[in-house]
Amino acid sequence: MEILPGAGVALVKVGDQRAEVEGRIGGPVHGPSGKNVYDTAPMLIVHYDPDDRVELVEIAYSGHGGEEVFFDGVQLTYRFMDEVVSELAAKGHTGTSSDIGFTFHAGFSVWSMGSLWALDLDPDADEEDERSIVEGVSVAPYSYWDEG
């Protein structure tokens, strides 16, 4: 699935009404609330504002041969964080680090909650390997993260 930085993905865009989203992809498997999980491949987690408009689109990793998330020819999910950030930087994409990942000025963030470990991707890694794996991507205008 390709992201549209600052805007979302083809199925769900920032600013869409909940009814529009659910008309395209069906109701949530978890929700309804401000944060809804939809049974898509890969799985979408959509955050709505109080007016039922999309404010943030998150895409989860699939892993093990499932569909992953891409931007500008770079696979974002289910890869080592440092490799993803390095490849995007080589293509001119800048941003800032956070406690769980990296937020790009183009309008997306890659992150890890620590539920995967290096052995999931690298069979030669040892149990002490602390490389983080991108577990998800969040898409919204950069100002979503920069308001502070």
Results as ranks from 00 to 15, higher is better:
Tyr78Lys: 05
Val74Asn: 05
Glu58Asp: 02
Pro50Phe: 01
Asn36Thr: 13
Ser33Asp: 15
Trp111Lys: 09
Val46Arg: 03
Ser62Phe: 00
Lys35Gln: 10
Arg18Val: 14
Trp117His: 15
Tyr48Leu: 10
Glu20Trp: 10
Thr96Ile: 13
Ser98Gly: 13
Tyr48Cys: 00
His47Asn: 06
Val74His: 03
Asp126Gly: 15
Asp72Trp: 09
Asp49Gly: 13
Gln17Ala: 15
Trp111His: 12
Pro123Ile: 07
Pro32Arg: 15
Gly66Leu: 03
Ile3Pro: 07
Ala140Ile: 07
Phe80Ala: 09
Val139Ala: 04
Ala118Phe: 08
Gly136Ser: 02
Pro42Glu: 05
Gln75Asn: 05
Asp51Ile: 00
Phe70Trp: 14
His105Arg: 08
Asp82Cys: 00
Ile45His: 02
Val69Glu: 08
Ile45Glu: 14
Leu4Ser: 04
Leu121Gln: 12
Val29Tyr: 06
Val134Gln: 01
Glu135Gln: 00
Val21Pro: 02
Pro32Thr: 10
Asp49Ile: 08
Val85Cys: 02
Thr77Leu: 09
Gly6Met: 10
Ser62Gln: 04
Arg131Cys: 03
Ala60Leu: 03
Pro123His: 08
Ser138Gly: 14
Ile100Met: 05
Arg18Ser: 10
Asp122Trp: 14
Glu127Trp: 14
Val37Cys: 01
Gly31Asn: 09
Tyr48Phe: 15
Glu87Trp: 01
Asp52Leu: 02
Gly107Leu: 08
Asp39Pro: 02
Ala89Gly: 09
Phe102Ala: 02
Val46Tyr: 09
Val54Thr: 08
Pro28His: 06
Thr94Ser: 10
Ser109Lys: 15
Ala7Trp: 03
His93Leu: 11
Val74Met: 07
Tyr142Met: 02
Val9Asn: 13
Ala89Thr: 15
Pro5Ser: 08
Gly63Thr: 00
Phe71Ser: 07
Gly8Thr: 13
Tyr78Gln: 04
Glu135Arg: 00
Ser143Cys: 01
Ile133Tyr: 06
Gly66Tyr: 03
Leu4Gly: 00
Arg53Asn: 14
Thr96Gln: 13
Gly31Ser: 10
Val54Asp: 06
Met81Cys: 04
Gln17Val: 13
Thr94Val: 09
Gly34Lys: 10
Lys35Trp: 10
Gln17Pro: 04
Leu56Arg: 06
Val14Arg: 09
Gln75Glu: 13
Asp49Leu: 05
Ala41Lys: 15
Ile59Pro: 00
Ile3His: 08
Leu76Gln: 06
Arg79Met: 14
Asp16Ala: 10
Ser132Asp: 10
Arg18Gly: 04
Pro50Lys: 03
Ser138Trp: 00
Ser138Val: 00
Gly8Phe: 13
Thr96Phe: 11
Gly15Trp: 12
Ser97Ile: 03
Ala118Asp: 13
Phe80Thr: 09
Gly34Cys: 10
Tyr48Trp: 02
Ser33Leu: 14
Val110Asp: 05
Val54His: 07
Gly65His: 03
Asp51Trp: 01
Val29Thr: 12
Pro28Arg: 02
Ile59Asp: 00
Leu4Val: 13
Asn36Gln: 11
Arg18Asp: 07
